[in-house]
Design a protein around this nucleic acid. Structure first.
Length: 738
DNA sequence: AGCACGCCGACT
DNA sequence: GTCGGCGTGCTC
């Protein structure tokens, strides 16, 4: 028998649970190599099959079912600060709520993966203190030392220092050799500035000051509270919530603040506004940042040096250390709903995060969502109202044009009343916005000879004519073809006819009617060049455009001082279709578009062209009666038990084999649970039943508000194995139903 | 998510 | 006879 002392009994290896940013659920167990000290939240590199992946230590000494001898050791630990406990708890909660594997939620936090490797170090120089007295001085050396002095002694990156002092790198090397400079490696990334909450903000109106005061008080008191900051366009909501952010920073200089915006709201002017308020540029985050910026922001948030973070919905999943306030601007925007991967509603997740961590959350909108209004009514959220427009601007006057009584000429879309209004407006040298939320020339193309409706191959989607590019385009699949001369179905020549209007067609009509007016189209697809959209918006602001024909790309947050007339070409658009939120969304969009008119001294005018002028949405808009509209909508939803009075989830099954898909959907229907407060409808063909050769069947699940819809779904779907070739997605709180 | 293993069509 | 298509399944 061997001497035991030669073979030291290895103490049982320590085991940790590592969550990986992969759809492998709860992660795997690994052993900890000797000498490695780990805390929960530590970022580590681990072997996974043949490769190495980054993950996060989720638990120390987990109760592991996997045998010890199967465990591999952790490869290395990253220098990144550990993921804060609050952020880990948030990942767990989101996974549970959205019924997604934890790993996929962690993937949202870890993003591209390269954040973990520190940026390349660069050579920098610092001034010794004191500067050695015997140092031989030259003019060049004096300039170098002067620049460093002004920067508090450095360190400054060598390349920048040489450029600023107008010296060659040799001068720096020589100085360093003479010990007049101390070389140092610094991280390449520019550090984030410390925001100064004490800078004077913009002067606030009485209303703004009062609102800012109540929000700041809540921030100061600490603890969870949800607010709706409710005010019409132009009432100065941004200034108010920036004061709340300042209050959070005054209370705790290490606090972090997350300001969420729809992607489209992340404009340079907005960022500059925040820069001015805090004296330093905020960190900003969205889906197509460059790799380097992404890493800089991610690391800045992780180490706590980025204090004010402005970003699109995914910013909510940054690795915050000390989140103290979340602002969700334009909270009603459907853009907060994530549509692939983990399906989440960022606004709702933000509220959950605030509740978990115990800090305030501000939802901001001129046209709040019904969910939020219901929460206000039931006392869960506090409403802070900003009723009065800041400055000289006034609310526009809104009128309905009954298109049945005042129809446009055949083949045209502007009614005589609207035409008169535009003509008058142009004569006065003022600007007009013709709003139609439809890209392209015509939404439908059909053959006059055989009646064939042009669709994308393998899909039920229509091809939209774009005259601008001379193509027929599918807005859902991206498919596009040059517009054919002959009907592809019956071969008849010159038989394809555009049906209905898009912005291009309205622009054509306007150009013919007002040939002298300067006209521009604003929609996402006429703006292919980067910056083209911004350029058009700037020209509009500068008064270089008389008539802007625009989709909702123009609806958001821009200020056009010369704009006095908005015509909603088809105010009914969006009301059709069985979408639960159609009316709400129509109301919000049209209200936002209306808000574009008359922001300057002149009062604005809004014309809503409608074929159903008695519909509640149109009437409420014309009367400016948000309360009335809200009441009616909420009443309708309450009767149906729809959100916010019940919970809703969609289960979508998809696959390329139609028969097998349908069969499986019916099998699933047989297993539907029958329980109090649970209703499941389906299967039914989902909207866009066939898309790129993939068929989709849908179930809708509705439960009472007290029922855990997640538990219902788990017990129903959990035991049923998915056959191959069929995919299943579960969407809690579905928005578009598509 | 990767990556390997595994079972059926067109080719050096 | 192989090369390779991507369906299926596994990674502590």
């Amino acid at each position: 028998m061997a001497d035991a002392s030669l073979f030291p009994t290895s103490s049982p290896k320590r085991r940790v649970r590592v969550l990986l940013p992969l759809p492998v659920g709860d992660g795997y167990d690994y052993t900890v190599p000797a000498g490695m000290r780990l805390v929960p939240g530590a970022f580590v590199r681990v072997p996974l099959g043949p490769r190495q992946v980054a993950g996060v230590v989720w638990a120390l000494d987990p109760a592991g079912e996997v045998a010890d001898d199967k465990l591999k050791p952790i490869t290395a630990q990253y220098d990144t600060p550990p993921l804060a406990e609050a952020t880990r708890r948030f990942v767990d909660w989101v996974a549970g709520y959205t019924l997604s594997p934890r790993g996929t939620v962690l993937r949202l936090v870890m993003r591209a993966g390269q954040q973990l490797t520190p940026p390349k170090a660069r050579l920098a120089y610092r001034l010794p203190d004191p500067v050695p007295p015997g140092l031989r001085m030259t003019e060049a050396r004096a300039r170098v030392i002067e620049i460093l002095r002004r920067q508090g002694g450095g360190p400054l990156v060598a390349a920048d220092l040489a450029k600023d002092a107008d010296v060659t790198p040799g001068v720096l090397k020589g100085l360093a050799a003479a010990e007049g400079l101390i070389p140092e490696e610094v991280a390449r990334d520019a550090p984030f500035g410390r925001p100064d909450p004490h800078l004077p903000g913009r002067a606030l109106s009485e209303h703004q000051a009062a609102a800012a005061e109540s929000l700041s008080a809540a921030v100061h008191a600490g603890g969870y509270r949800a607010f709706l900051l409710d005010g019409v366009t132009g009432s100065g909501k941004t200034e108010v919530y920036l004061e709340a952010a300042a209050a959070a920073l005054k209370k705790d200089p290490d606090a972090q603040i997350c300001i969420l915006l729809p992607e489209i709201g992340l404009t340079l002017p907005f960022l500059e506004r925040i820069h001015r308020r805090f004296g330093t540029a905020p960190a900003h985050w969205h889906s197509d940042l460059s790799q380097g910026t992404r890493r800089r922001v991610w690391r800045g948030v992780a180490d706590g040096s980025a204090k004010v973070v402005v970003g699109a919905r995914s910013a909510l999943f940054l690795p915050f250390r000390r989140l103290a306030l979340i602002v969700v601007d334009e909270e009603h925007e459907p853009a907060y709903k994530q549509h692939d991967g983990v399906l989440y509603q960022a606004r709702d997740m933000a509220v959950a995060r605030a509740a978990q961590d115990g800090f305030p959350v501000l939802l901001v909108s001129a046209t709040p969502s019904l969910e939020t209004l219901a929460n206000v009514e039931e006392g869960r959220y506090d409403r802070v109202a900003l009723a009065v427009r800041y400055g000289p601007a006034r609310l526009p006057e809104t009128a309905i044009v009954d298109m049945r009584a005042d129809p446009p000429e055949r083949g045209q879309w502007l009614s005589p009343i609207a035409i008169d209004a535009v003509t008058t407006c142009l004569a006065a040298g003022e600007q007009v916005l013709l709003y139609l939320n439809r890209r392209g020339y015509a939404p439908v193309t059909l053959c006059r000879t055989c009646g064939e409706r042009m669709t994308a191959p393998g899909s039920d989607t229509w091809l939209v004519e774009h005259r601008y590019s001379g193509r027929l385009v599918c807005h859902h699949t991206g498919y596009s073809i040059p517009k054919p001369d002959h009907c592809p179905h019956c071969g008849a020549p010159d038989s394809l006819t555009p049906c209905g209007p898009g912005v291009e067609r309205i622009a054509e009509e306007a150009a013919a009617r007002w040939p002298d007016a300067r006209l521009a189209i604003l929609s996402s697809d006429t703006m292919t060049a980067p910056g083209a959209m911004r350029q058009t918006l700037e020209r509009m602001t500068a008064g270089e455009i008389d008539i802007l024909v625009a989709t909702q790309a123009a609806a958001k947050g821009h200020n056009f001082p010369g704009l006095t007339l908005v015509v909603a070409v088809d105010a009914d658009l969006g009301l059709a279709g069985g979408d639960l939120r159609a009316a709400e969304r129509t109301y919000q969009t049209l209200a936002q578009v209306s808000g574009r008119a008359g922001r300057a001294e002149r009062p604005g005018r809004v014309l809503l062209q409608s074929y159903q002028p008695e519909s509640p949405v149109i009437c409420a808009l014309a009367a400016g009666d948000r309360e009335g509209f809200t009441e009616a909508e909420l009443e309708g939803r309450a009767q149906l038990g729809f959100p916010p009075f019940g919970r809703l989830a969609a289960v979508i099954l998809s696959g390329d084999n139609e028969a097998r898909l349908t069969r499986f959907a019916h099998d699933l229907a047989l297993a539907v649970p029958h329980a109090e407060g649970v209703e499941i409808w389906g299967p039914a063909p989902a909207p866009l039943y066939r898309l790129k050769g993939i068929y989709r069947q849908r179930f809708l699940v509705k439960t009472g508000r007290r029922v855990s819809i997640q538990a219902v779904l788990k017990s129903w779907l959990g035991p049923i194995k998915l056959p191959s070739g069929i995919r299943r997605t579960v969407d809690i709180d579905p928005y578009s139903f598509t």
